[in-house]
């Protein structure tokens, strides 16, 4: 149900783009208006969400310590998993954001030959990493369409990505990796019962959407060719704020573009915000030094406590009897 809903939602979106361009000739809407709207929602929404997080303070120092604390000088501290300095945090965050350190730690509890074992479970890590990195590389590669002269690092990335020099046009490895990993991420939501149980429509939808984007991109590059110079013309028109709609770009391009716009617009409304959130996570981005440096809670307020005086008043006689010193005789 949750799967089908998301699936048909994406199908409907594809069809609407197809109909919009092929039948209603709304190239300007799909090629110019929607992209501008989408990028606006994306940027402003993203900023808004981050600022909203930022408007809540981090009252306490709550890093999850995954290693030995800094203590006596002769005890080896785990400077990354239990950082006591900013540099440690930076490394920890870098490992987390770039290499998915925590997922790498993943274990699975399983039965092997009648024995319970905590085995390695790296598939999610691997697929996650493959997915995110290939997505990033593909994203960066697309900048060739948005920059009048393509910077050399983008050319280098393209060169590396088509390293195997297979097929014509050259096959990008990331295309395959992205499709493969997104398929894996979907299948595990279907076939691993726990994960299926916890999955919401909001989990399937982005997967279908991204699959749709990747698939339409692959189709466009390798099968239903479009006039790439025309695509660049359109893209450049957008970024120099003089939008044009070149004739004769195939409808597959508009489908591709529309799905991307949806992803952008959907981004700040959804869990995809984990992209920014991971950097704000207090359990990972904080130094574990609260015994060394006082952390300030901006909304700390005085509370009512049962004072020693009240306590002694309650128990003075008993204390005296037990030989415990008291303030007032």
């Amino acid at each position: 149900m949750r799967i089908l809903f998301s699936f048909f939602a994406v199908i409907a979106l594809v069809l609407s783009a197809y109909a919009g361009v092929k039948i209603a000739n709304l190239q300007f809407l799909f090629g110019v208006v929607i992209p501008y709207i989408a990028i606006t929602i994306f940027t402003l929404g993203f900023v808004y969400r981050v600022l909203k997080w930022g408007s809540s303070p981090v009252p306490f120092r709550i890093p999850t310590t995954c290693g030995q604390q800094k203590s006596l000088p002769w005890i080896k501290q785990n400077r990354i998993e239990n950082p006591s300095s900013i540099s440690g945090v930076i490394i920890r965050m870098a490992l987390e954001a770039l290499l998915f350190r925590s997922l790498f730690r993943n274990l699975k509890t399983q039965l092997k030959d009648g024995k319970l074992v905590y085995g390695e479970a790296k598939w999610l890590w691997l697929a996650g990493l493959a997915f995110h990195w290939s997505f990033l590389i593909i994203f960066v590669r697309h900048f060739r369409l948005f920059l009048q002269s393509t910077p050399s690092f983008i050319k280098t990335i393209e060169g590396l990505d088509s390293f195997l020099q297979v097929g014509v046009p050259l096959l990008y490895m990331t295309d395959i990796v992205l499709l493969g990993s997104v398929t894996y991420l979907f299948l595990r939501r279907v076939f691993i019962p726990q994960v299926k149980y916890i999955s919401l429509a909001a989990d399937y939808f982005p997967l279908f959407l991204i699959f749709g984007i990747a698939a339409s991109g692959v189709l466009m590059r390798y099968f239903y060719k479009v006039d790439i110079v025309g695509v660049k013309e359109l893209a450049m028109g957008l970024v120099i704020l003089k939008p044009v709609i070149p004739q004769g770009i195939g409808v597959i391009f508009y489908i591709h573009l529309f799905l991307i716009c949806l992803l952008f617009a959907y981004f700040p409304l959804s869990k995809l915000m984990h992209m920014a959130g991971v950097f704000l996570s207090p359990t990972r981005n904080m130094v574990n030094n609260s015994r060394m440096v006082r952390h300030i809670n901006p909304w700390n307020y005085p509370v009512h406590v049962h004072t020693y005086e009240e306590y002694e008043n309650d128990f003075r006689e008993k204390m005296k009897k037990a030989g415990i010193p008291v303030e007032k005789e």
Binding site: S102, L124, V195, L200, G277
Partner: peptide, 8 residues
């Protein structure tokens, strides 16, 4: 906000 329900 940011849980993706990966199941880890």
């Amino acid at each position: 906000d940011i849980c993706v329900r990966c199941g880890a």
